[in-house]
């Protein structure tokens, strides 16, 4: 249980207040047990910085990303229109999210449907707070720890953001070992394009096992991800190789929350 109040936009609006930023939690972040930990870590960081934020709570709905990637443009646009009505109703201007899929959809696919917001992935958002001096990170607990970073497709190639997560990790004083395939050439975890919700087609290997192997080849003790789906896929990959005792899979937000002892 979070030890502090997580304000909803409805509450804040009722009190006549408007938050600086809306924290878009996403479906994984709301329902998936592993991803909920990422959500809580992010909420802790937001609370810690003292920034005024809110969540939509039960007024949030799936962005429609998995429907669109599964070819269902109708369902996608229905979801988009419902969310845009809510967001525009509250006059939301600025959104931060821990899910690159939500980030991509809100940022790139909502404007044409009437939803125009300044959308940031949490790596970008936190990095900006750092630069503005509104977030301070002491690297102590991770100093020199060998880690590697897995670029989420929907943050990296889809939106050309490779530096923000690395800049955050640098602040943590970790020793970052890049995988052979990284940044523009990063290998997908296997979850995108709605693959998360179905069995893979017949093949010779599972994508997430291959990617987990690549991550572990770096000798990293922590594999850092920036996406709840990548996180699940890589965790499964590590488990499949029976390395879960040696190798942890953590989100950027969790790394920061741990470093700050939040």
């Amino acid at each position: 249980m979070t030890t502090f109040q997580v304000p909803t936009l409805a509450q804040m609006t009722a009190e006549g207040k408007a938050p600086e930023v809306l924290f878009w939690v996403g479906c994984a972040g709301s329902f998936d047990d592993r991803a909920k930990k990422i959500t809580k870590a992010m909420a802790k960081i937001l609370h810690h910085t003292g920034i005024s934020y809110a969540v939509l709570g039960t007024e949030e709905g799936c962005t429609g990303d998995p429907a669109k990637r599964a070819g269902n443009e109708f369902l996608f646009q229905m979801q988009a229109m419902m969310n845009i009505q809510v967001l525009n109703g509250y006059e939301v201007k600025h959104i931060v999210t821990t899910c690159p899929h939500c980030f991509n959809t809100l940022k790139n696919e909502y404007p044409e449907l009437g939803g125009n917001y300044h959308v940031e992935h949490h790596s970008q958002f936190l990095n900006r707070l750092l630069k503005e001096g509104r977030l301070k990170i002491e690297g102590g607990s991770f100093k020199g720890k060998k880690i590697t970073f897995h670029d989420p497709c929907y943050l990296g190639r889809a939106n050309d953001e490779y530096e923000a997560p690395r800049a955050l990790l640098e602040k943590l004083d970790v020793s970052l070992k890049e995988m052979r395939r990284c940044k523009q050439n990063g290998l997908c975890c296997g979850a995108g394009g709605s693959q998360m919700f179905k069995e893979a087609e017949k093949g010779t290997a599972e994508i997430n096992h291959v990617r987990a192997d690549e991550a572990m080849e770096t000798g990293a003790e922590i594999v850092v991800a920036g996406c709840p789906f990548c996180n699940t896929m890589l965790t499964d990959g590590v488990k499949n190789r029976e390395k879960e005792d040696q190798v942890q899979v953590l989100d950027l937000a969790e790394m920061i929350a741990l470093a700050e002892d939040l």
Partner: peptide, 23 residues
Amino acid sequence: MMTNVENNGAPWPFNQMDRANWI
């Protein structure tokens, strides 16, 4: 998955009203 999105606003069969339970 799409039926879930349509009925309860998430790709899994969870209740929309439980969305904020994590808090």
